[in-house]
Amino acid sequence: MKPAFTHLALHVLDLEACIAFYRDYCGLTLVHEREDGDAKGGSRVVWLAEPGKEKDFIIVLLPGGPGRDQAEDDFSHFGFALESKAAVDAIAARAEKAGCLAWAPRQESYPVGYYCGLKDPDGNFVEFSYGQPLGPGS
C-alpha cells in the first residue's frame, strides 16, 4: 500500500483563535477533541476538517506553539480553493476589515489562478484561490 497524506499537525500559540479562524474563514469543523497530558502548553488537542472529508484529511491543532513569524517573501502556505473570483474577493474584503489580509487578490497565469492570502492567528499564510487545477473551479 502506498502512503496516504491524512493530516497536518501544528503547535499554535492561541488555540482558540486558530480554531475560530479555520472555522470562520476556511469552513472547517471540529471533528475530534481530546485531552493530552503530554501536549506542550496545554492539554486540549483538536482535529479540524472539511465537512464530509473527516476521514480524508484533517488539521490537528496542538496548544503551546511559539507562534510563527513568517517573512513576507516566504510563500509557504495552506491552500483552499473557492468557487469563484467573487468568493476570493469577498474573503479578502472580510480579512482586510479584520486586519489579517496578507496578499490582496491578484491574477496569475495558469496554474496559479486568482488568489489572495490571509495570515492566521499563529502567523501562517493561508491562500484562497479560484481557477487552479485543484478543488472547486478546476
Results as ranks from 00 to 15, higher is better:
Leu10Phe: 04
Ala20Ile: 06
Gly52Pro: 07
Glu72Arg: 14
Ser129Asp: 11
Thr29Arg: 13
His11Leu: 14
Ala17Thr: 05
Ala17Pro: 07
Leu62Val: 14
Ala81Gly: 12
Ala39Thr: 14
Tyr115Lys: 08
Arg34Phe: 09
Cys116Asn: 00
Ala9Gly: 11
Gly99Ala: 00
Lys2Cys: 10
Tyr130Arg: 05
Leu118Gln: 04
Lys2Thr: 14
Ala17Leu: 04
Val45Ser: 03
Phe128Pro: 03
Ala17Arg: 10
Lys40Tyr: 07
Asp73Thr: 15
Gly27His: 01
Val88Pro: 04
Asp24Glu: 09
Val112Pro: 00
Lys55Phe: 06
Glu35Tyr: 05
Ser76Pro: 04
Leu8Ile: 15
Glu108Ser: 13
Phe80Gln: 06
Leu48Arg: 11
Phe57His: 08
Leu28Val: 09
Asp14Pro: 12
Arg23Ala: 03
Gly42Trp: 08
Thr29His: 10
Asp122Ala: 13
Ala49Tyr: 08
Trp47Met: 15
Lys85Ser: 00
Phe75Ala: 06
Ser76Met: 11
Gly99Thr: 03
Glu50Lys: 14
Leu101Val: 13
Asp122His: 11
Glu96Met: 07
Val45Lys: 03
Leu13Thr: 07
Leu61Ala: 02
Gly113Pro: 08
His7Pro: 11
Gly27Asp: 00
Glu35Ala: 10
Arg23Gly: 01
Gly117Tyr: 09
Pro51Trp: 00
Ile59Glu: 02
Ala87Glu: 07
Cys116Leu: 02
Glu127Met: 03
Ala95Met: 01
Pro133Phe: 09
Ser43Tyr: 13
Ala86Glu: 06
Ala81Ile: 05
Pro51Ile: 03
Phe21His: 02
Ala87His: 07
Leu10Asn: 01
Leu62Phe: 09
Asp38Ile: 11
Ala93Ser: 03
Gln132Pro: 01
Arg94Met: 03
His32Ile: 08
Asp24Asn: 08
Pro63Lys: 08
Asp74Lys: 10
Pro3Lys: 06
His11Glu: 11
Lys55His: 12
Leu118Asn: 00
Glu72Ala: 15
Ile91Ser: 02
His77Met: 01
Lys55Leu: 10
Ile59Trp: 10
Ile58Val: 15
Gly65Phe: 08
Pro63Ala: 06
Val31Trp: 08
Glu35His: 10
Phe80Tyr: 10
Lys2Ser: 14
Lys55Trp: 04
Ser129Trp: 12
Gly42Arg: 09
Met1Trp: 13
Asp38Tyr: 13
Ala71Glu: 10
Arg68Asp: 08
Tyr25Ile: 01
Leu61Gln: 07
His77Asn: 04
Gly123Lys: 10
Asp56Arg: 13
Leu10Pro: 00
Lys2Pro: 15
Leu48Asp: 09
Asp74Arg: 07
Asp56Leu: 09
Tyr115Leu: 14
Tyr22Gly: 07
Lys55Thr: 11
Glu33Gly: 13
Ala95Asp: 00
